[in-house]
Amino acid sequence: MNVLGIAVTAGHFLAGEEIVVDSQGHVTTHSWILPETAEIIWGGLASLIIFFLLVKFAGPAIKKGMAARTQRIQDQLDGAAQAKAAATAEAAQIRQAKGDIAAERSRIMAEAEAQAAAIRQDSAARLASELADLEAKGHADIAAARGRVGDELRSEIARLSSAAVDHVVSGSLDESTHQDLIEQFISRLEAMA
């Protein structure tokens, strides 16, 4: 028999009720659903005492725990709300930044294309200018080379002509010619006087 059984038996005994116990020690009540009167009385008193003790001593602690839990949950709810607001703001910023990035990308692309176009145009103009310069220089070089070759040719002709004249003249000057030239010079001197 357990402690409750003992207490119930004791209650029956104090209430003057007949207690029926079988051979195996099991207590048999008069009703299958209603406890014994004594059990109701004692059980009720015990329940009231326990309820009172709970209200008296455990109530504030429970209240405090509940309040703390409520506050903690409220704090968590507030934190979650704040986190949600922050996330929403950040999402807005990200969306804005994304929009800005797209606009910046478009601007950079447009600027790059403009620069590329300018560079292409500038390169084309410079190339054309260099080609023109090269062509002009080529014409000038050709003209200079033509003139130089002509000069060299004239110089060579003059040199050969000079050598030929020297050769012919020196070969044609015999002794009598030399003497004639000397006499002509002396006569010229005498005439000058």
Binding site: V169, S170, L173, L181, F185, L189
Partner: peptide, 17 residues
């Protein structure tokens, strides 16, 4: 080659070929 050239001071009388 032929003829004469005379130099007297700064005066040059040239009759050379």
């Amino acid at each position: 080659l032929g003829g004469l050239v005379a130099t007297v001071g700064d005066t040059v009388i040239d009759g050379t070929v």
